[in-house]
Amino acid sequence: MERSPPPFFKQGPSANARLLFFSLFAITLLIVDSRLNALGRLREGIATVLYPVQRALLVPRDLADLGTEYLADVNRLRAENAELRRLEAANANALLQTEQLATENQQLRQLLAMRERTAIRSTVAEVLYDTRDAFSRKLVLDKGQQHGVIAGQPVIDASGVAGQITRVYPLSSEVTLVTDRGSTIPVEIRRTGERSVAFGGSQTGTIELRYLRTNADVREGDVLVTSGLDGLFPPGLPVGTVSAVETASSAFVQVRVETAARVERTRLLLILLAEPQALPAPPPEPAAESRRRRRRD
């Protein structure tokens, strides 16, 4: 007795029959399409209908590629920006150093020209810093006792007298500028030859002639030079130019002088290494002077 599946489970032709049928059908379509090109229009229509779907399916991929490319460009631009900033800083630093070297070279040339005009042995010193005292005008130089510097030696720049060495250390020294209120220097007016003493001025960058008589022949624009009477500063070094002549009292006139030295704008100075015996002897200390008087008495 043969058993057959109930009607509910009947599935039609067998799988092998269906595979054979569809294979023959596909081969037939391939032959017809290759010989008669009958399915070309159908393929075009299906491609046209499916094109929007294809584009929609490609949107996530395009967005991912665009985002990846954007992030890569941002990172690349950041790296290039950082490199450009580094190069800009390096170029700016090199430019500043070049300008500074050019300025120092020019100052050295001017100092060498000034050294040739003076017969005294000299040495070039660099300004390290200003002193902290706001009521004095002093600079610290990079030359000291080991370089032959002693207290009292004059200091000049390429334009004229800058000051005088007042303190000396083994590797550095301190110069008091002519504009310091406690500074004095014997001068003479180049035009007339009249001698006087210049004091540090009350205004920054100036010196003064305080005790000239009212009939003294001095006028604005006169050039002051060292007189050489102190035996320290060589005669004829430029000191400054008269900028104003004021009547201080009935007996004297006050002359304001702009200094020739440009100590505010230079880093290189020239120390005149005068011999120790040529320098004036320092004043005796009060205690030592009193002891000498007691011994004499």
Rank of each mutant, 00 (worst) to 15 (best):
V53I: 12
L58N: 15
Q100F: 09
P154M: 07
S34A: 13
P52V: 05
S122N: 12
G40V: 11
A94R: 11
E80L: 15
D62P: 02
A113D: 07
G67Q: 08
M114Y: 02
I120V: 14
D142R: 02
V127H: 05
R137P: 01
R86C: 00
A94S: 10
I120W: 05
E99K: 10
A64S: 14
N75E: 03
L95K: 13
S136L: 07
E104I: 10
A113I: 03
D62H: 14
L139T: 01
V155G: 03
D133L: 11
E44C: 01
F135D: 15
A102R: 12
E104L: 15
R115T: 12
P154S: 10
E116N: 15
A113N: 06
T131L: 09
A47V: 02
A102I: 04
E83F: 12
V140H: 05
R41N: 11
R137C: 05
S136Q: 13
R115I: 10
I46K: 03
A72W: 03
D65Y: 07
A79G: 10
A89N: 08
A119F: 11
E116H: 12
A113P: 00
L112M: 14
T123K: 06
V53P: 01
A151H: 00
V124C: 02
A79C: 00
T98E: 07
Q146V: 14
L66D: 08
Q106M: 12
L141Y: 03
L57P: 00
R86D: 03
V140T: 12
L139R: 06
A151C: 00
M114N: 01
V59T: 12
E44R: 07
V140L: 11
N81K: 13
T123C: 00
L57I: 05
I150V: 15
A82K: 09
D133E: 13
R41M: 08
V127A: 04
V53Q: 02
D65S: 11
A90Q: 09
A72Q: 11
E99R: 14
G67A: 09
D65H: 08
Y51K: 13
E99D: 10
E83L: 14
R86H: 02
L96Y: 03
Q97M: 06
L87N: 15
V49Y: 08
T131P: 00
G45Y: 03
A72D: 11
R132K: 13
V53L: 13
R76A: 15
L141Q: 01
P52N: 07
E69F: 07
R78S: 04
L87A: 15
R85D: 11
A64V: 14
M114W: 02
G144L: 03
G144S: 10
L71C: 01
L42V: 10
L77F: 09
D133T: 11
Y51C: 09
R61Q: 05
L141F: 08
Y51D: 12
V149I: 15
V59S: 05
E126F: 02
A47F: 03
Q100S: 12
Q145C: 01
R76F: 13
E99Q: 13
V149H: 04
L39E: 02
E88W: 06
A125Q: 01
N93Y: 04
A47P: 00
A89E: 07
R86G: 04
S122M: 08
G144I: 04
T68R: 08
Q146F: 13
R117A: 12
L71H: 04
D33L: 02
R78Q: 04
L39Q: 05
D73T: 08
E126W: 01
R137N: 15
R85C: 01
A113H: 05
A72M: 07
E126R: 03
